[in-house]
């Protein structure tokens, strides 16, 4: 077998991934991921967006070997997800946070819940205590460590679920619509944690329907029918306003307003992604014209 020169900077290497499954009703074969190749640099923040059924979640579940490729391969930090003998090496490196926090919390006390993962890794008790403390501090939930999870708000529950993942010390965390069931305050809390983890060097992959959440990422991948439709920095991707709308997606608020202003004949430069950037640019341009 020919060994490719390893790119040391990439921590996830998805090569020509195909994932097929059989539909129950008629035994038809569905191709959920269709020849996708992605290299994710270590420490980067990648957002994946796309309509329901576009293959985003299937792709993510392949990365930590919850699903195995029908074709192609995924290498996580040097380990092939299809190699059963290294399954736990893969799982230790890739943590996952899902949409519904209620489905991810297993214990009656917050700190027990965070301990669950490290205990299963066979980590010594002293080390586990340190990890619980660090993980709960990282999500700002340490003072709630003795609480019962069901008494927490949605955002707090999701932060505890994230602490449970952090305590496993993964190099990569995949967030699969982590804010879909939260109110605006809870969404803000979870996004702050996510950005902090990225700043601390963890490789972050975020799957979301909220376009505003992707603005701060290094790279956005838009999936459509199992394939990559667009791939680039937020500025590059959101220039394709017509294509994004044709894919059944919405633009970030500021990008949509800017596009509508351009259609009304107002000059607005490309690449203004946040409301403040757009407002500042409009004000500065008006003042400059005086």
């Amino acid at each position: 077998m020919e060994i490719e020169k390893k790119n040391d900077n990439s921590i996830i290497n998805i090569r020509d991934l195909v994932f097929e499954y059989t539909r129950e009703e008629d035994d038809g074969v569905v191709c959920a991921v269709d020849h996708v190749s992605i290299e994710v640099p270590r420490g980067s923040f990648t957002s994946i967006i796309g309509r329901n059924g576009s293959g985003k979640s299937t792709l993510a579940k392949n990365v930590n070997a919850l699903l195995l490729p029908s074709g192609g391969s995924i290498i996580v930090d040097g380990y092939d997800t299809a190699d059963e003998s290294v399954l736990w090496e893969v799982r230790r490196r890739v943590g996952m946070v899902f949409q519904n926090p209620d489905n991810q919390l297993v214990s009656a006390v917050v700190e027990d819940d965070v301990a669950f993962g490290p205990e299963n890794l066979g980590i010594p008790p002293d080390e586990i205590r340190t990890r619980i403390k660090d993980a709960l501090n990282a999500v700002d939930m340490y003072e709630h460590r003795k609480m019962a999870p069901h008494l927490l708000s949605g955002g707090q529950k999701q932060r505890v679920a994230i602490a449970g993942v952090i305590a496993m010390r993964p190099a990569i965390i995949i967030f699969d619509e982590p804010t879909a069931m939260l109110d605006p305050q809870g969404r803000g809390e979870v996004m702050n944690i996510l950005e902090k983890l990225h700043a601390d060097g963890i490789t972050v992959v975020l799957i979301t329907h909220f376009m505003e959440e992707t603005i701060g990422s290094d790279r956005i991948i838009i999936m459509d029918r199992g394939e990559i439709a667009l791939d680039g920095t937020p500025r590059e991707v959101f220039e394709n306003t017509a294509e994004i709308e044709a894919l059944g997606l919405r633009l970030p608020f500021a990008v949509e307003i800017a596009a509508r202003l351009r259609a009304r004949g107002v000059f607005v430069p490309q690449g203004l992604l946040s409301m403040r950037e757009l407002a500042d640019d409009l004000v500065a341009r008006k003042e400059g014209a005086r």
């Binding site: 509508r260 107002v266 014209a289």
Partner: peptide, 20 residues
């Protein structure tokens, strides 16, 4: 609403704000 915002911005920044 977005419609109201676009109207307001187009009026406020439409002529004076345009780049030369």
């Amino acid at each position: 609403t977005r419609d109201e915002l676009v109207d307001f911005l187009a009026e406020t920044f439409g002529s004076g704000g345009e780049a030369k």
